[in-house]
C-alpha cells in the first residue's frame, strides 16, 4: 500500500510546470483564468464617454471651497448659533424669573395677610370639596 503511494506512474512533458507558471502569471492570461468577475457587454467601450459626461457635469458645478476657506465661515456660523442660543436662554430665564417672583409675592401676600378661614371663604364650595376629597400624597 505504501509502495503504491510513493510511486507516481504519471509523467508530464518536460518543462511543463515552468510553462504553466509562466502562463498563469502572465497578465492577460491570469486575468482570464483567475478573474471570476465580468462586466456588461461593451462596458469599457462606453466607459470613456461616461467619464467624459461626469467631467462635464462636474465642471458646471462650482467647485467646493477648500478646508482653509471653510474654517472662518464655520467659526462665524458657530458663533452666531451660540449667540442666538445664549440670548434665547437669557430671555426665557428672565421670563421664568419674573413669573416666579410674581408667584412668590402673591403667595407671601396671602400667607401674611390672610388666615386659613379667609382663604376658605374666598373659594367656591366645589373647590373646597375637591381640595379636601383629593387623596393627600404620602
Amino acid at each position: 500500500m505504501t509502495d503504491f503511494k510513493q510511486h507516481n506512474p504519471f509523467r508530464v512533458p518536460k518543462g511543463y510546470f515552468d510553462e504553466l507558471e509562466e502562463k498563469l502569471c502572465s497578465s492577460d492570461d491570469s486575468i482570464s483564468k483567475l478573474n471570476p468577475f465580468s462586466t456588461p457587454e461593451n462596458y469599457f467601450e462606453q466607459l470613456d464617454e461616461v467619464i467624459e459626461q461626469r467631467l462635464s457635469i462636474n465642471k458646471r458645478i462650482p467647485q467646493k471651497s477648500n478646508l482653509s476657506s471653510l474654517i472662518p465661515k464655520f467659526i462665524a456660523v458657530a458663533a452666531t448659533i451660540v449667540l442666538i442660543v445664549t440670548l434665547f436662554q437669557r430671555t426665557s430665564t428672565q421670563e421664568i424669573e419674573k413669573e416666579q417672583a410674581f408667584n412668590d409675592f402673591i403667595e407671601s401676600y396671602y400667607s401674611e395677610t390672610l388666615d386659613s378661614y379667609d382663604m376658605l371663604s374666598m373659594m367656591e364650595d366645589i373647590e373646597i370639596e375637591s381640595t379636601f376629597s383629593s387623596p393627600s400624597k404620602p
Partner: peptide, 26 residues
C-alpha cells in the same frame, strides 16, 4: 476598474468608484 472591482466586488459599485477615481485624477 479591475483593481477597484476586486476591492468592492460589485460591478455597479466599481462603476461608481472608477468614475470618482478619474474625476479625482482630473
Amino acid at each position: 476598474y479591475w483593481h477597484i472591482r476586486k476591492l468592492v466586488l460589485d460591478h455597479d459599485d466599481a462603476h461608481d468608484v472608477v468614475q470618482n477615481t478619474f474625476i479625482k485624477i482630473h
